[in-house]
Design a protein around this nucleic acid. Structure first.
Lengths: 129, 129
DNA sequence: GAATAGCGCTATTAAAAAGATAGCAAAACA
DNA sequence: TGTTTTGCTATCTTTTTAATAGCGCTATTC
């Protein structure tokens, strides 16, 4: 490995990240997915189609392309997302598996919504705008 | 339910969040879990035991208690985490279900690690700066 | 073949979030 | 009563994200 200066680290299993020095896969994953828009980007790519960066930006409601670019780079380095031939982005095989792994989340979220909604939601609802 | 502070938004299904105005459960969940340390905190609570905030801070390697306090408050408001009688924090029933929903993530991470490790890492190390 | 439009991406500045230390009040313990 | 532990706040610095503008490139259209 040439890795001249490790000023910026690739978020990959085996590499130390903010969350952990160990490089444990799960810790690296939690770090990577815990960054802004990372989960959402995967979610918007869930259909498997190639999406342009602009489309992603629009669907995710991201105003600034900078964060999107950064996140996409990280996800590409992590082999979760790839550039498509002819432009755009799509999930890698690895990315599709990841998406399957977090698929139960949507189901949970629905249960969560109904459970939380069943409770004393009134003490929260009016604080919104 | 005096609602002392109406300026802060509770992250709950039904409420608009950064990611989405719709309040769709999955979007709210992605927003909440996409915040720094949120996933990791859940992960450290996965055994179901009551953990003190200091223990959590230590295990998560969080240097600043501020973020931890903020995240724990959000998770409590979302009914995912609760304060334990006699101090400390633990998962709610909802939180335990959430953890089950993202449990496949650990398994995926291990596969991911072996897959990524199998490939040519050199093509990434030099692109960094 | 100039004009147009969409693409990926960078530049810049402001705002927000997180990192890092220190320390306090209350409870638990001795 | 003195000591420890705990949850949390205060303060300040650093990092990350937000918000706009716009560049160079490619493809299409007139």
């Amino acid at each position: 490995m040439t890795l001249s200066k490790s000023t910026k680290k690739v978020i990959q299993p085996g590499n130390a990240v903010r969350n952990s020095q160990s490089g444990q896969p799960i810790m690296v994953a939690l770090d990577l997915l815990g960054r802004r828009w990372a989960l959402r980007i995967l979610w918007e790519l869930r259909h498997g189609d190639t999406m342009t960066s602009r489309q992603l930006q629009k669907d995710c409601d991201i105003s600034s392309p900078n964060v999107l670019t950064t996140r996409l780079r990280e996800l590409r380095e992590a082999k979760i997302v790839a550039k498509a031939d002819g432009g755009g982005y799509l999930l890698t095989a690895e990315g599709k598996q990841l998406l399957q792994a977090i698929a139960p989340l949507a189901e949970w979220a629905d249960r969560w919504a109904s459970d939380v909604g069943r409770e004393d939601l009134t003490c929260y609802s009016k604080s919104q705008k």
